[in-house]
Design a protein around this nucleic acid. Sequence first.
DNA 1: TAATAAATGACCAGCGCTGTCATTAACTCT
DNA 2: AGAGTTAATGACAGCGCTGGTCATTTATTA
Lengths: 341, 341
Amino acid sequence: MKVTINDVARQAGVSIKTVSRVMNNEPSVRKDTYDKVMAAINELQYQPNAAARNLASSRSFSIGYIYDNPNAYYVIDMQRGMLDACRKHGYELIIHPTNAKSAGIVQEVLDLVQHSRLAGLVLTPPFSEMPEIAQALEKIGLPFIRIISGSTPSPKLSNCVLVDDFTAAFKITNHLLELGHTEIAFLCGDDEHSSSGERLAGYQAALAKRGIATNPKFIVPGSYSFESGVKGAEKLLQLSKRPTAIFACNDEIAAGALFSARLMNIAIPQQLAIAGFENSPFSRQTWPPLTTAHQPNVTIAQQAAELLFRHTKPNASKNLPDKQPVFIPELLVRESTAVSS
Amino acid sequence: MKVTINDVARQAGVSIKTVSRVMNNEPSVRKDTYDKVMAAINELQYQPNAAARNLASSRSFSIGYIYDNPNAYYVIDMQRGMLDACRKHGYELIIHPTNAKSAGIVQEVLDLVQHSRLAGLVLTPPFSEMPEIAQALEKIGLPFIRIISGSTPSPKLSNCVLVDDFTAAFKITNHLLELGHTEIAFLCGDDEHSSSGERLAGYQAALAKRGIATNPKFIVPGSYSFESGVKGAEKLLQLSKRPTAIFACNDEIAAGALFSARLMNIAIPQQLAIAGFENSPFSRQTWPPLTTAHQPNVTIAQQAAELLFRHTKPNASKNLPDKQPVFIPELLVRESTAVSS
DNA sequence: TAATAAATGACCAGCGCTGTCATTAACTCT
DNA sequence: AGAGTTAATGACAGCGCTGGTCATTTATTA
């Protein structure tokens, strides 16, 4: 029932130590010895006792994912991606939902790291954008990867996975421009999330490139919520000179805008085009379905975890360059911005 | 930095073993010794090393949560509840999303249990309703708790947390009846999920109690999805004698029904009342907001985990009776069934 | 073929805790 | 009060593995 390293050693005809070497990817193990050991491991279905390894090596085989995100779908996707990577490398994932705004958050993170004896951490917004967290983790020397909004890799962001919201927002805005819209409004998300700023910048850049001056009235501050979309759109649509298109910072806001427009009997997309961002599941279930940008969250999370393992595993493929992945969400055109026929 | 059991023992002036006894709630520790040790633990902020405990005792301090649920909000809530309980008892939660319909699912579960050396498992639908899983777990003697739909505790369901969908559905139907509706249709969820059957039964019971015969045409089979709601409602609303109210098996279906009704220019709730189930976040964001039933998922999950720990921890409060919690989702009246004025 | 380098094994200590059993302290009862 | 009994505590080995140190074997090179 319980297969130990001894059994494997016997089966492979090598010493315990050699099996240990194989398990830990130590150098100086000949290819054929390695194969013999691996064969034995597979045959006996050996699973090293994590507790014992942990105890003996004082290394740990779990990574943590800290989040505070009201968007359940995003979180679930992230978990999935990280779990995929974890399974591949024999790690475990410790999830830790918490409140980013609570006072003792830094201490809470440190406690978690210590208590669960984590080998590393993956952070998504808003944690990935909190300098105090990054500093605290650097101080204790814990590897961590941040998933953040950004377009240009740089040494300062060496431990980041970038999601290029700027370019994606540029593309969405461009899509609206190509449909002939020139009066395009923007509904912002939370100021604290840099994604909101990036998306706004992408929107502005696209307009600028066409030589269209941004109308300050068309840029409405808000937050990542349905209500914010309702209110923002309401304001926009009451303007004497109302926009012909609205680009919302995410799908929830867009859904709110949709809601407002319907209340005011404005036909979508004939009288008003609306685009969202994120490709949340419900973006296909609104009426009409929302044009949006799709982020491959599962893949993003997977990469983030993979990157983390590179810093975590001692003898792994450290030689590989630490390239910084940049993901550009892709444009997904649906009926909410379709050409009116 | 690293506080071990030795430090605590020295601080408290007792032997290591006694500290261990305190940590494990073992009997035969005198009150004042206990207090001394606890004081030392608190003073030093001692956190036992899980790996070492695990190794020495071959007990494990993590439980698993296996799920395959497209509803991210449900899953997130469940995780939260279990995590709360885990933190309280010093356990860790291992999450395992997977595909319930895959062929080797039983083996996959067993592998997970062995690999992650789980102390127990929490199952939600559909896993909690798969007899082969329960059997496999019983065979290896692993404690597990199932969260299932049901109203009456029974010895056979001793390791279950029950969610009384029947009564909740009864209440919703009753609410519609009280509004004066008699032509009430029902949009079913997936047959495989027993919750669908329970809700249907509750609906039927409420009608029966009023002496209203169920109209077979008013019971539309389907699945837990928006599309299913769209199609189901379409069918119902094309009937020569259409219902004046629709009770959908969950909010997603209800949202689909809402969508259909709007397409057909049917005013909600004036011409048609619609009720959902589950109180998903978006049920407040539809137009009009949906009447629904609220399940306290976080609490349910917490209780499930607590119950599990009772089977898992050796010297815990085993004396407590193993009462079976039954949760009755509560009626949440919103505009989609408001009295037309 | 000898010299040099690389791979492997033997062996031991020890990670931080728990299980077992021996020991000591604290009660009970005559 | 002292023997008998029970409750509380401690000493010690060992869980399964890794890290280190050397000794030994095997491959590689000159």
